[in-house]
Each structure stands twice: as structure tokens, then as C-alpha cells.
Nucleic acid binder design. Sequence first.
DNA 1: ACACCTTCGTTCGAATTTGAACAATAGGAG
DNA 2: CTCCTATTGTTCAAATTCGAACGAAGGTGT
Lengths: 171, 171
Amino acid sequence: MPSTSSAPSAPPSAASPYEPRWLDEEEMAAWRSFVTASNLLNRRLERQLKEDSGLSHTQYEILVHLSAAPAGSLRMTELADKLVTSKSGLTYQVTQLEKMGLVGRRSCPSDVRGVFAELTDQGREMLREAAPGHVALVRELLIDVLSREQLAVLADGLGQVSARLRLDDAL
Amino acid sequence: MPSTSSAPSAPPSAASPYEPRWLDEEEMAAWRSFVTASNLLNRRLERQLKEDSGLSHTQYEILVHLSAAPAGSLRMTELADKLVTSKSGLTYQVTQLEKMGLVGRRSCPSDVRGVFAELTDQGREMLREAAPGHVALVRELLIDVLSREQLAVLADGLGQVSARLRLDDAL
DNA sequence: ACACCTTCGTTCGAATTTGAACAATAGGAG
DNA sequence: CTCCTATTGTTCAAATTCGAACGAAGGTGT
């Protein structure tokens, strides 16, 4: 009965020490639509990017974050944090992008251990080409489907959620 | 300059045939927080489930959907749709769950090709044990962070988004 | 009955992801 | 300066993911 959560009419009879607060119908709807929208959206964006630019969404996001950074470069760890991936995962993807000539590695002057991932000219060019199609789809599938108010709530609410998550992670 | 989208002050000078409609600050904030929240949330839930129940989020969701279905069973394709994964991905995971004794396969009477994934008693028990901890975390990290109104907007807006995505996919 | 196109679930190989273990270094307390 | 602990990025093996290709049926129209 307990789906992700709710037990509308019949909570799991008697199980755990303290019966948890299940999700009511509305909470459940919010959670389900969040998960579903996220999955569906990812799927579509992945396909679009791969077909039109030969990039995975992850790779695209790496380019985006680098392009937004001061010198088109970021420390590996910092980049991993922004992307919300594992360090090893980033190492892998940066290597891939390096092979494609879109990103380069530079050692950090102030810290021998440090490594900067740096956007190459080719990388910038690739981003310039890939961005329009990607943005158009994000707009079509998400942004333009929602009202201004809904967008504001999304930004606000999920911003809060993210902030909390970040804090916890920092522990 | 174009991150996922926005070009706040300086749009990419002149590139594509038709300059796309970049995302303004608010749209950008909504999109970023959506992506980030989704990733962070997934990461946490994944860890919690694995540690407390030895299940991946995907596996947990399979159990949830089966438990919510008429006879605790669903056709593979139907289940794959609900989960928003590839058919091959589902085949793999159902096999894993089968090895764990949480799910079984049954052939479909009316269609020789069809296969039903079916929740075993052990699977139901596992779900009963895993649900409280999972729900508690979803509540702590998302539900309880948002107000009733925000939840309503989430459910509504993202529900719409999902619905559209589903339609497109059906093509 | 026959051809034709769709659907079903699996298999296969390739790509990706993750956490743990590591070696090298940084940084701080004494 | 000298321990001791935290951090950095990589490597490694294992797990998971996907899409394309398949073999086997279903369904339809003629």
C-alpha cells in the first residue's frame, strides 16, 4: 500500500515502531509529478542533445558551467559540486571532452594537487552551436508550459530545497 | 555565454539563423533549481535506500508501482512506462529483483509474448520495511520544506509538464 | 490463408556512473 | 619543523543504463 508514501485510506496496518507520516494525496501528487517530470525531461533532453550535437546532457552541462566561470575554467572538485556528480564521474567525462577537444586540463599554480578544467575555443564554439536547440526544447517542454507565477514558485521552492540539500551535504 | 540558456546582458553576438529566445533570469533560476534539486534529491534518496534497505531508488520504485497495481503485477512494458526507463533497463532490474526474491515473472495468458512482473510476499514485506525511512526523507527534504501552496503549484505545473511529455512520447 | 506492419520482452555491446582505495599534497596544532 | 588529519584528483572493479537488433507473436486487410 505505501507507494512512495501515502496510504490514503489504509496505512500499512501495523509495522514500524512509530507509524510514519505518510503523504496525503496532494503531497503525493507533487512528489510523483516531480519525479516523473524530471525523468521524462531528462530523457528528451538527452536525446535531443545527442542527436543534434553529439553531447550528453552531462557533457553539455560541463561546458555550460565552465563557460559561466571566470576564465572558462574551474577546479575539478568545484565543478563536480556544481554538477552534482561524483568526482570520479567528472574525471571520466572531462577526459571524454578532452578527447573531443572541447575541454583541456591545466594544473593549479597554488596547489600542486589541483586541476583546472578549461573550456577550449572549440568547446566554446560547440556550446554556441548546441545551446539554441537545447534552450528551445527546455522552453517548449517546461518554461513555456508554466505561467510566470508557477515559474516563480518553482524557482523559489526548489531553490530552498536545493539550498538545504547543499547544507546537509556539507556535513 | 549561453548557459543552459540565458544571456543576461550579452547574448551570443550573432550565431544561429534565428536568435533563440534565451531564458531570462527568473526562467533560468527556475530551470537551474529544478535540475539541481532533482539531482541532489536523487543522490540522497539513493544513498538512504541503499544503506537502509539495500535497494536502489529504481528498484524501490518498481516495488511501489507493482504494489499499487491490481494484482501486484504489471506487464513489463506498462511498468517501464510508469517508471520512465528503457525496456532493457527494466528487464535488467526485474531480473535483479527476481534474484533477491522480491519479484517474480509470470507469463500472460492472453498474449504469449507478454510477461507480468509480480510482487512476491517477500517483496511486499521489503516494501513495508523500506517505505517509512524513504517517505520520511522525502518529507524532510522536499515536502516539509515547501508550503501547501507551493506543493499545489508543483503538483499542478509539473503534472502539466509530465502530461505533455507523455503525449509527445506517444507519437 | 497470406503478406505486412506493429508490439513484446530479451539480448548484446558500448557507454556511463558510482564508491572505495590510493598516492600526493595541503594545512594546522603543538 | 613534525605529526596528524583533511583534501585533491585518479584509478579500479562492479553495477547500471541505454539503444539497436532480434525472434516471436499479435492484428489487420485482402
